[in-house]
């Protein structure tokens, strides 16, 4: 069985079982190790990728279900070497510690700020319910996201 996947705008073939979790295909087959299988239960959010523009848990998505859809991983979220406004703000606010949760955090926050250009701190706090971080205590991530609000309008990355 060969899966035909569109990953970061590129058509890719994977000779794998369609039930293989997408996170494993990305990591083992395509060496895109940004998405992290931290819990494999849908609770931590470290494995989030965009599928057709929606943050999706790649640990709970069978590869077969992602065929024919636009899969965007953290590696392909912004053009090579550039940071999107959320990533920029997270760097500027010194929000990153071990870094394991950030690929997922960036997905959730990028999506939240695309949806709502002027969210409140409380709205962002609740948007992060599916993204656990064991290191930072979250507040600086919220500071960064608030400072990036408004910069993601117009469907730009």
């Amino acid at each position: 069985m060969t899966l035909r996947l569109t990953i970061n705008g590129r058509e890719s073939l994977a000779p794998d079982d369609p039930m293989t979790p997408l996170v494993d295909l990305l990591r083992e087959r395509f060496h895109l190790t940004g998405a992290k299988p931290v819990c494999r239960e849908g609770f931590c959010g470290a494995c989030l990728v965009m599928i057709d523009g929606e943050p999706t848990l790649s640990c709970l998505t069978p590869g077969g279900l992602a065929e024919g859809r636009d899969i965007r991983t953290i590696e392909g979220l912004s053009p090579a070497g550039r940071l999107n406004p959320v990533q920029n703000a997270l760097e500027a606010h010194d929000a990153v510690q071990c870094g394991m949760c950030f690929p997922g955090m960036v997905m959730t926050l990028t999506h939240a700020l695309r949806r709502n250009a002027a969210p409140s701190r409380e709205e962002l706090r609740h948007a992060l319910t599916g993204n656990t971080c064991r290191c930072t205590g979250y507040e600086r991530i919220l500071d960064a996201a608030l400072s990036a609000a408004g910069a993601l309008q117009g469907g730009e990355p």
Binding site: E28, G34, T73, E75, Q87, E91
Partner: peptide, 23 residues
């Protein structure tokens, strides 16, 4: 000084290779 972390960029773009990512 309040210095930016040099490892933040790679961590934010998914390029950092932790041991679990090595193959």
């Amino acid at each position: 000084m309040d210095l930016k972390r040099r490892d933040a960029r790679d961590k934010l773009t998914g390029r950092t290779r932790y041991t679990m990512d090595r193959a």
